[in-house]
C-alpha cells in the first residue's frame, strides 16, 4: 500500500492551502474527464514570486494530496523556478512512483498550477 503512505493520507485528510483566494492574480483549472478528477489553482504573484496560493478540487486521494503537496512546496518560490517542474518533481514530492496510468492523477495539479501561472506546456 505504498501509494497511501502516511504523508499522502495526511495531505488528503488535512489539505494545505485548500480554499479560495479572492484577490488571486492567476487561476488555472485541469480535469480528467475519464474519472472526474479536477483541480483548480489560484495564485497571487508579486515580483514574479508566489506570495499566496489556494486550491480546490475533487477526486482521488492521489490527485488531491498532490495538489496539497504542490501548494505547500511552491509558496514563496519564483514563477520561473516552478516552470521547470515536471513529472519527476511530482514523483519526488509524493515520495512514491505511481504507474503511468495513475501518475496522471498526480500530474493534474501541476497542470492546473502552470495554467494559473500562465506557463505553457
Amino acid at each position: 500500500m505504498d501509494l497511501y503512505q502516511q504523508n499522502i493520507l495526511d495531505h488528503y485528510k488535512n489539505p494545505r492551502h485548500h480554499g479560495l483566494l479572492p484577490n488571486a492574480t492567476g487561476r488555472g483549472e485541469a480535469s480528467n474527464l475519464a474519472c472526474g478528477d479536477a483541480v483548480n489553482f489560484q495564485v497571487k504573484l508579486a515580483k514574479d514570486k508566489i506570495t499566496a496560493i489556494a486550491w480546490s478540487g475533487q477526486g482521488c486521494v492521489l490527485s488531491q494530496a498532490a495538489a496539497s503537496l504542490l501548494a505547500e512546496n511552491v509558496i514563496g518560490k519564483k514563477r520561473e523556478m516552478v516552470s521547470k517542474y515536471n513529472n519527476e518533481t511530482m514523483i519526488k514530492l509524493l515520495e512514491i512512483t505511481p504507474g503511468p496510468n495513475r501518475l496522471r492523477c498526480a500530474l493534474l495539479s501541476l497542470d492546473a498550477l502552470k495554467k494559473a501561472l500562465q506557463i505553457c506546456g
Binding site: 500500500m1 505504498d2 501509494l3 497511501y4 474519472c35 478528477d37 477526486g59 482521488c60 486521494v61 492521489l62 490527485s63 495513475r102 492523477c105
Partner: peptide, 11 residues
C-alpha cells in the same frame, strides 16, 4: 474514489 479503491485492491 474508484481510483483509490483500485489502487488499494492492487496492493
Amino acid at each position: 474514489h474508484p481510483h483509490d479503491l483500485a489502487s488499494v485492491l492492487d496492493s
